[in-house]
Amino acid sequence: MTAVIDFLLQRKSEPRLQAPGPDADTLDKAFQCAANTPDHALLRPWRYLVVEGAGLEALGELFASTCGEGSSEKEREKLRLAPLRAPMIIIGIASHTPHPKVPESEQAFSAAVGMGHLSLALQAAGFGVMWRTGGIAYHPDVMAGLGLAENEQIVGFLYTGTAASEKPPVPRPSVSEFVDRWPR
């Protein structure tokens, strides 16, 4: 196997992250990798927001503000503290452009692949990452609070930092469990 394949087979999500996060040069190189994603018609249907420092607390307040009237203080606090689980969060955004041959779904897939490239590049540089979504990624108040336009959607929150502890390998399915031949 090649070094790239060996690296991909060792990819993992790291839920426990601490400082430091990536420096500016590492982050710039990782974004260059993200921009190298497949992109039908060269629409560049993605953009990213980098959140760190006091921005993480502001993001937590934005998350907490989505709690409805019936929510408990415990629920609000959980959302408020969520962004503090990493020294940096990169928010991946799909920016859709009307195009006769490239539907919005394909543009969102391109943005998601870009997040995958970004994730792998940061891991190759020695950082841990955890891609998170959940209901908060689709909440209209979060999208508005982050300044998303009507033609945009969040594809994920990439929590980024230094792994705080070694996570055991996750069992993976055998290829025969998810690959078939067609026609049979």
Rank of each mutant, 00 (worst) to 15 (best):
P38F: 07
P171E: 07
D25R: 06
P98W: 04
F63V: 00
C67V: 02
A164T: 04
S176C: 08
L59S: 03
P100E: 07
A121K: 15
L81A: 07
H117R: 09
D23Y: 06
E57C: 07
R76Q: 02
T133Q: 10
I154H: 12
R80E: 07
V129F: 09
D23R: 02
E75F: 05
L59K: 02
E57Y: 05
A58H: 03
R76S: 00
F109Q: 15
A86W: 01
E75Q: 12
F127E: 06
L59Q: 07
D141M: 14
K78A: 06
P22W: 12
A121S: 15
A124W: 11
Y138Q: 15
L59A: 03
A3F: 07
A112L: 07
S110C: 15
R80T: 04
A86Q: 08
P173T: 08
A94D: 01
E52R: 13
A112I: 01
V170Y: 09
P140G: 10
V113M: 13
R132I: 11
R11Q: 06
Y159M: 10
T97S: 02
P15N: 12
V113P: 01
P169K: 14
R80S: 02
R44E: 14
G128K: 04
R85E: 04
S71V: 01
Q10R: 14
A64E: 11
L17C: 04
V102H: 13
G128F: 01
T37C: 10
L79V: 00
T133K: 13
F63L: 00
D6F: 06
L43P: 03
D28S: 11
A144F: 03
E150G: 12
F63R: 03
E69Q: 15
A54K: 15
P38W: 05
D39H: 12
V155K: 00
G21T: 02
M115S: 02
S95P: 00
R44D: 14
M1S: 14
E150V: 03
E69P: 13
G55H: 06
Y138C: 09
I89Q: 01
L17M: 08
I5D: 11
E14H: 11
T66H: 15
A3K: 12
G161S: 12
T162K: 02
L120H: 11
Y159V: 04
P100A: 13
R11W: 11
W46N: 05
A34S: 14
L148E: 10
R16D: 04
V102E: 09
K78R: 08
